[in-house]
Structures are given as structure tokens and as C-alpha cells.
Amino acid sequence: MQLSLLSAAAVLAPEVSALLRFSCSQLVTERLDPLVDPGKAPSQHVHQIVGGNAFKPEMTGDVPSQASCTTCEFADDFSNYWTAVLYFRARNGTFKRVPQMPNQGFEAADGGITIYYTPSYNGQKVTAFQPGFRMIVGNPTYRTREQASRYRQLTYTCLDQPGTRTGETVEMPNRPCNYGIMANIRFPTCWDGKTLDPPDHSSHVAYPESGTFESGGPCPASHPVKIPQLFYEVIWDTRQFNDRSIWPEDGSQPFVWSYGDKTGYGNHGDYVFGWKGDALQVAMDTDCYITCPQLRRQSFQTGNQCKVPRVINEDIDGWLTELPGGIPVTGSPTKREEAWEA
């Protein structure tokens, strides 16, 4: 397994000499969102969550001290990472949740998310996230390319094989993908240095003033502190839905996010920091690459056993006549002439 993991990482980031890349198995999937809808059960739309078992409708206080297990490979990472859930909409208008599948090199994991923390691309050090730090990237209300361009590098990869890492698009892929659809979620890498969690959960972070984190672009004066690049890869196993005869008759792609987005432009991700002690800063300072002897690890099997029970009693897995919560589907369909030609 280790050889395939290292090989995959080399393909993903050949210019990087330091990064953490690890798997976090599924913790729970349901309509909860302690950032946007704290205390509400249910929240607006379905999310899939990984990480520590302190996750609940409202999260306050010190996260690591409230968790007793984590689904992540690094045993001191009790953070929570989550995204929306993808659904297939059949020709008759019904919906079916698309299952997740583990990434290449993490086949023993229970679905989940592949997490990256990249400390530097040019030798500059970063400041690890602090206790109480939280952030959101992307906006679920966006339905146009122009809106989506406000957030850099929230993309999709149509996987022709497990190792495909080219051809990223900002909209949902419009052709059958042989090995599923991967959502790529890259967070901003500059921090104002003082705010842990503003009301909008995003104004305290920013993208580089010019260029990108990868190119060593400088941070803006308003957000001078460089933080690690946090990056999610989520693979949706769309293979059972690749038969175009069950796709919409107009040739548009059939996948819809749980918040009703069929364009893909509303792609977004949420993060609650929960590393124990200074473990993450140690990893960032020692330029760990994939494996990190300074950090405690646990097996996939141990991580797979960490779960929290669902709070909301509703069907999110069967064939549904509407998205959970009654969320309407919005966005312009992809026309046949723009779709993949068989």
C-alpha cells in the first residue's frame, strides 16, 4: 500500500518536498452543519463528515478534549472536515445518493476524504491553525462560472482511472467518468493572524495577493500570515450511473449536490481545527512528506470503527422523490450540444 500511496502523491504534487497526505474514513452522513446552522437539527442539506467524534449540531470549547476517537490516520487529528453529498437524479426525477469510495493508496478506508496539509512550496514556513480556528471555502448558492471564479481551485476531475489528475473543471463533468468524479477543494492560504472564526467563517482567510500558494504568491497586507494549504479530495463512485440511457433526455449531466446545485459551481467545504497540542505545527516545521514519524498513526481498521450515531431520523439513501429537506434543484442544464458525445 505504501508504494502506491507514495506514487500517487508524486503524481499529484511532483514539485512539493513536504506535505501531509492521509485518509479520514466516514464518520457520519446527515443534515448537520455546526458552522452555518449551529444547534439546528436538521440543518439545510446533507453533509458527509470525517474526523473526530466530537462532531455534533453545535460545537463549542476545545474540540480535541471532547473527542475519544478519530476516523483519520493521524491519531492526534480530531479535526472535522466535511462537504455536501452528491445525488444522482434519474430520468423519472427520483434521487439516489452517490456512494463515496476511498482514494488510491487508501483502499482499506471506509470512503471518506483524502486530506492534504502543504506547508510550503518555496521554503517559507507556515503557521499552523490555532485552537478554535474554523473556516469555509466556496458558496452553495453560486450557480454561474463568474461566481465560482471568486474561489480559486474548487474543481472536479473526471476520473478515467484511479490515478487521473488532469483535466480539472469548475463545473460538474458532463460525460460518464469511468472511475467516478473527484471533487477538489483547496482552501485559502493567508490568515489575518488574529480572528479564529468570524460570523461568515471565511473573511479571516484570503488567497495570495498575486499568483497562488503553489507559485509562492505573497499574502495581502490584510491577511499577512501564511497558513498551510488545506486540500480535500473526495471521490464519488458514479460508475453505477454511467449508463446514458438513464440520464436526462436532453443530454444534461445527472448529478446534483444535496443543496440543489446541478452546475457544480456551488462546490464548497468546511473545516473545524482539532489537532491535539502542537502536533500539526510540529509536522509543518519538520517538512514531513507523506509519512511523518513525529506524528502518531493508527490503522485504517481503527479509524473505520470510529462513528457517531445519526441525530436526524430520515431516509437519505433510498430512491427519493425529492432531495432531503425538500431542497429544490436549480441551475441551467448542460445542453446536449455541450455534452459528451458518445
Rank of each mutant, 00 (worst) to 15 (best):
M1E: 08
M1R: 03
L6S: 10
A9G: 14
A13L: 15
A13T: 15
E15V: 07
E15I: 06
E15Y: 09
S17W: 09
S23D: 07
S25W: 03
L27N: 08
L27G: 10
L32P: 05
D33C: 12
P34N: 02
V36I: 12
D37L: 13
D37C: 12
K40G: 10
P42Y: 08
Q48N: 10
A54L: 10
P57I: 02
M59C: 11
M59W: 12
G61Y: 04
Q66A: 09
S68G: 03
S68F: 02
S68A: 05
E73C: 02
A75M: 04
D76K: 11
T83S: 12
V85I: 09
Y87W: 03
G93W: 03
G93S: 10
F95K: 00
K96M: 02
V98A: 04
P99L: 12
G105S: 09
E107V: 15
A108P: 02
A108K: 13
A109D: 06
G112H: 04
I113K: 04
I115D: 06
Y116S: 03
Y117I: 03
P131A: 04
R134N: 10
M135H: 06
I136W: 00
V137R: 00
Y142T: 08
Y142N: 05
E146Y: 03
A148E: 08
R150V: 01
Y151N: 11
T157P: 00
C158W: 04
R165Q: 03
R165N: 04
E171H: 15
N174P: 01
R175G: 14
P176C: 10
P176R: 08
I185G: 00
R186Y: 00
P188E: 00
T189Y: 00
D192R: 08
K194M: 07
P199Y: 04
Y207G: 00
T212D: 00
T212K: 01
P218L: 06
S222W: 11
V225N: 05
V225R: 05
P228C: 06
Y232G: 00
V234R: 08
W236T: 01
D237F: 07
R239Q: 09
R239K: 04
N242Y: 07
R244E: 13
I246W: 04
I246F: 06
I246Q: 09
E249D: 15
D250S: 09
D250T: 09
Q253W: 09
P254S: 06
V256P: 10
S258P: 06
S258A: 10
G260E: 04
G266Q: 02
D270I: 00
D270E: 07
V272Q: 07
G274K: 08
W275Y: 08
W275M: 03
G277C: 12
A279N: 10
A283M: 03
T286N: 09
I290D: 13
L295Q: 03
L295P: 11
F300R: 13
T302N: 14
N304L: 12
Q305T: 12
K307Y: 10
V308K: 07
R310N: 07
V311T: 15
I312Y: 08
I312A: 09
D315W: 01
D317E: 13
L320N: 01
E322A: 13
P328R: 01
K335L: 12
A339D: 09
A342E: 15
